[in-house]
């Protein structure tokens, strides 16, 4: 059992389990699954700065902050108890492409060759971590949700605006990964 838990899980195991998060949150507390709102609640609790968008009773949404704290703890638990000792196995084409940018370390979930505290202060690291993060936070709120709120919760509830949002996420991702990221990685 423990051996199975340590291996990477197949999509047909992980996908349905993620899908079950939706009814679990609904039945346990009438909460609609979503993660990116937590970023807004953090703004509202720490730095509302008299901005109307952040002037609300964030404590009523405390469940969302506890949920993302749980996600953080899930990462801590997995890496300590259920960690897969092998490097992540990806498509050989990607390995070949990334090697040309000097990315060869597959031991972590993030590419430690380019995402670490030293590279943070280089142009490449700044673009990837600081600018990238900003786009994620700005874009998800402007879109009214992220992969969980729109692509899973929204699509599952047959909301066509969520389909529009999901297609926009994918278009943005395809443009970045195939057309822009190669330039950033070769900096």
């Amino acid at each position: 059992m423990i051996e199975f838990l340590k291996e990477p899980w197949a999509w047909y195991v992980a996908g349905p389990l993620i899908g079950l998060t939706v009814p679990a949150l609904l039945i346990l507390g009438n909460k609609s699954f979503g993660v990116s709102s937590s970023l807004r609640h953090i703004c509202a609790s720490c730095l509302p700065a008299n901005i109307p968008f952040f002037k609300y009773e964030w404590k009523k949404e405390i469940w969302n902050l506890l949920f993302v704290f749980g996600i953080f703890l899930g990462g801590v638990i997995t890496v300590n108890l259920l960690s897969n000792p092998d490097p992540i196995a990806v498509n050989p084409k990607l390995v070949a492409e990334l090697a040309t940018y000097g990315i060869t370390n597959y031991d972590n979930l993030v590419p430690t060759d380019i995402m670490n505290w030293e590279t943070l202060f280089s142009l490449k690291g700044f673009l990837m971590m600081v600018v990238g993060g900003f786009l994620v936070g700005f874009g998800t709120r402007y879109a009214g949700g992220c992969t969980s709120g729109h692509s899973i919760m929204g699509l599952a509830n047959l909301q066509w605006p969520s389909l529009v949002a999901t297609m926009s996420f994918m278009v943005g991702g395809f443009i970045m990964a195939n057309l822009i990221l190669p330039f950033i990685l070769s900096l």
Binding site: G133, A165, G173, M176
Partner: peptide, 16 residues
């Protein structure tokens, strides 16, 4: 916003 914000998030998703 779902289109503009969605594209923005997509760009960020593929970098980070």
């Amino acid at each position: 916003g779902q289109i503009y914000g969605g594209l923005t998030f997509g760009l960020g998703w593929a970098i980070t």
